[in-house]
């Protein structure tokens, strides 16, 4: 009896919590299908109004925010940051976790201290640096400016180091005894073992940079280099300000990240068995 009942109760109660938790976003999705003059009608109660729903806002938002092109730029940015970042950060993290060298502790402290630097406050000096490096102007330099400054990330080095540290040493030692090079051990043994952490880093990176705003605004000077958030923000200031379009664009902009999250999740969980100490 309770074996059936208990999980069922768990599902139902959790579903209720989830709906309550998501209420603001449910309102958002619902309102994105409502005609402009009805969006705010009835305040939050409007969520129960199902008349006149239509998808026109989506088509308009897609066009007005140039979503197709913006998606391409944002996805390229995310891919670049992940690609370069995963390699560079995990290499550094592995060195901090497993190797001994002079000045390791002060260097690590310095790296950790870099975590706290937010781009909002460093945008101006960073822009000067990017310009000195030729990272402004057309699509390629701009992509460079969107990717390179954020690929090495103190936060990720710190995070991955934690996970390397919590790996058991046995496998790596065995490989070392077999004569494998340090890089090989890192590449073939250590890195695959922290797959859940890598998946987490991917999600965090995509997430952070998908919502980047101030930096793209400064470097994405041409229309063909605009990211999704800039496209979305344009709808806030580009008259006529249509909340239906804004909300629809927000839904569109959210979907790719959720998709990536869902995909990465498989790795975050499947790892259970992989990491398990045999």
């Amino acid at each position: 009896m309770s074996r059936v009942f208990k999980p069922l109760a768990g599902w139902i109660s959790s579903a209720l919590v989830a709906v309550f938790f998501l209420l603001p976003l449910i309102w958002m999705v619902h309102a994105s299908f409502r005609p402009e003059n009805r969006i705010f009608a009835g305040g939050f109660g409007g969520i129960l109004d199902f008349g006149d729903l239509h998808a026109g806002n989506y088509a308009a938002a897609w066009r007005r925010a140039s979503m197709g092109r913006a998606m391409f730029v944002s996805l390229t940015q995310a891919a670049g940051i992940i690609g370069i970042g995963l390699l560079v950060n995990s290499l550094a993290a592995y060195a901090f976790a497993r190797m001994d060298f002079r000045g390791k502790n002060p260097l690590f402290a310095l790296v950790v201290a870099l975590i706290i630097l937010p781009v909002e406050v460093l945008a101006v000096p960073l822009f000067l640096t990017a310009r000195d490096l030729g990272l402004t102007g057309g699509l390629l330099p701009t992509l460079g400016a969107l990717i390179l400054p954020f690929s090495a990330k103190a936060f990720n080095i710190y995070f991955l180091r934690q996970h390397f540290l919590s790996l058991p040493m046995e496998l790596e030692e065995a490989a070392r005894v077999d004569g494998a090079s340090t890089f090989r051990i890192y590449w073939k043994i250590a890195l695959p073992s922290i797959r859940p952490a890598l998946a987490t880093v991917i999600v965090l990176d995509v997430l952070t940079h998908w919502s980047d705003f101030i930096w793209p605004l400064i470097v994405c000077t041409r229309e063909e280099t605009r990211t999704v958030q800039i496209g979305l923000a344009n709808l806030f200031t580009e008259p006529p300000i249509q909340y239906g379009h804004i909300l629809a664009a927000a839904v569109i902009a959210t979907l790719p990240v959720l998709l990536i999250f869902r995909l990465a999740q498989t790795h975050m969980v499947a790892s259970h068995n992989n990491v398990g100490i045999k």
Binding site: A123, V124, F127, L128, R131, T136, I214, L217, I218, T221, R222, E223, I230, A233, N234, F236, T237, E238
Partner: peptide, 21 residues
């Protein structure tokens, strides 16, 4: 011509001025 969203247009001009661009 290049267009900038007007809520942060002045930020863009400022960054451009700082960088001589």
């Amino acid at each position: 011509i290049e267009f900038f969203p007007d809520h942060q247009y002045s930020e863009r001009i400022a960054a451009g001025a700082a960088a001589g661009d």
